[in-house]
Design a binder for these strands. Structure first.
Lengths: 208, 208
DNA sequence: TTGTTTTTTGACCGGTTGGACAAAGCGTAA
DNA sequence: TTACGCTTTGTCCAACCGGTCAAAAAACAA
C-alpha cells in the first residue's frame, strides 16, 4: 500500500539543497516565480543548471519547498500572541516583532507578497489550511480582550490586516520607502516605523 | 536641433491604443511585466500580435505608457488633501478615497505593487520626480496641522505610509483577504475596512 | 585497489517568446 | 479609377527557457 521509502539524503544533498533554497529565496523574492529562471537560481547558488536540477526536479519543486518551509516562520509572531498576557503589551509586541521581521527577513515577506498579488495560485491551499484557522483562533482572543474592556470595540480581522499591511509595507515597498524618505534617514526607518505604529495603533491621531 | 514632429495619431490609432492599454492593464496587473506575454495582451485586446506591435513597438513601451498614464490618477487622492480644510475631515476623506480606489481600481494598485516589490526598476525615476515632491508638500501640510494642535505629534511620512499600506492592502492582497474573511462577508469588506480604518486612525485601540 | 554509488557537466531538445518583415487588404481623397 | 497612406496578418527568426540524457568525475565503501 505505502510507497517504498526514498533513501535518506546524503550530507552533500542536505548541504546543496540548503544552498539552492537560499539562492532561490534571493532570486524568487525579487523577480517572482515567472520572472525567475532556473539559470539565475543556479548561478546564484554557484552551480550549473543540470546540477541544480539533480537536487530539485523542477522549478516548481524549489518554489514549493521554499515557501512551505517559510510559512511556519512567517506565522510565528502571530502564534506568539498569548491570550493570557496584557492585551496592550501583546499587541504592541506583535507589531514590534512584525517590524523586526520586515527588517530582518524582507525577502521572505516579498515572496509572499508576490505570490498573493498574483492571486496566490500556488499557496491558496496553505492560506486556507494554516493562515485562516490561525486568524480565527486569534480573532477569538482579540474578541475576548474586547469583552474584558481591554480594547476598544473593533473588528479583529481588519485589525490583523492593518498590522500586516503596515509592517510588511516596510519590507515589500522598501524601494518606495527609501525614495520617499531620502538617504537622510538611513536604517533608522524601522525603529521610526515601530514607534509610529505603536502610537497609531494605541492612540490614533486625533488630539484628546 | 529638435526632432521632426511625429505625425498626429489617427482615430483608429487612438482607439486601438486605448483598447490595448486596457487589455494590458488586465494582464500586466496579474502577472507582472516578466510574467506577461505580448500574445496574452494581444489576445485580451482581440487582435493579432503583429497588429498590436504596430501600435506599440515593444512590450516595454506598452508598460511604460500604461504606468505613466496611471500615476497621475493614482496620486489624485493625495493631491486632493487640502491644507485649508479641517484636518480630521481631510484625513478621513483621504482614507475613504483610497479605500474606494482599492475597490474600484484594484488592477492599478496591483501594477504599482508588482513594480515596487521588484525594486521599481522602471518607475523609480517617476517616484523620485513626482511622488517624492508631493509627499514633501503634503508632509508640510500635516506638520502645520500638528503645530495648530489639530493632530497628535507624529511623523507625516510614516503616517502616509500607513494609509497607503492599509488601504492598498485591500486591493493588492485581495486574494488573502477573501480567504481569511471567508465567503460570508461578500463585497461589504471595503465598507467594513473604511469604518475600521477611520476608527483606528482617529482613536486607536486603547480604551480611554 | 577495485567496484559502486553519488555528483557534476556539456550537449542537446522542444516549446515559448519578443520582435522583424514583407505582402496583402482597406479607406479615402483627387 | 487610381494612387497613396493606414491597417492587418502570416511567416519567420534568434534568443531564451525548462528540462533530459549520457557520460565523465568525484566520493565512498569493501
Amino acid at each position: 500500500m505505502s510507497a517504498s521509502q526514498p533513501r535518506p539524503r546524503t550530507r552533500i544533498q542536505r548541504e546543496k539543497r540548503e544552498i539552492i533554497l537560499e539562492a532561490a529565496l534571493d532570486v524568487l523574492s525579487t523577480h517572482g516565480f515567472r520572472g525567475s529562471t532556473i539559470d539565475q537560481i543556479a548561478e546564484a547558488a554557484g552551480m550549473s543548471k543540470p546540477n541544480l536540477l539533480y537536487y530539485f526536479r523542477t522549478k516548481e519543486e524549489i518554489y514549493e519547498t521554499l515557501i512551505h518551509g517559510l510559512l511556519d516562520t512567517w506565522l510565528d509572531p502571530l502564534r506568539a500572541m498569548r491570550e493570557d498576557g496584557d492585551p496592550i503589551v501583546e499587541l504592541t509586541g506583535y507589531i514590534r516583532r512584525k517590524i523586526e521581521m520586515a527588517r530582518d527577513f524582507p525577502r521572505e515577506s516579498r515572496i509572499f507578497a508576490n505570490e498573493i498579488i498574483q492571486g496566490a495560485p500556488r499557496i491558496a491551499p496553505m492560506l486556507e489550511n494554516e493562515l485562516k484557522p490561525l486568524v480565527e483562533e486569534k480573532s477569538k482572543v482579540i474578541r475576548s480582550w474586547i469583552r474584558a474592556g481591554k480594547l476598544k470595540r473593533t473588528d479583529p480581522q481588519h485589525l490583523l490586516f492593518s498590522i500586516w499591511a503596515t509592517t510588511q509595507h516596510y519590507a515589500d515597498f522598501d524601494t518606495q520607502v527609501k525614495i520617499v524618505l531620502g538617504t537622510t534617514y538611513g536604517e533608522g526607518r524601522f525603529e521610526d516605523a515601530a514607534r509610529f505604529l505603536e502610537q497609531l495603533f494605541l492612540h490614533g491621531l486625533k488630539p484628546d
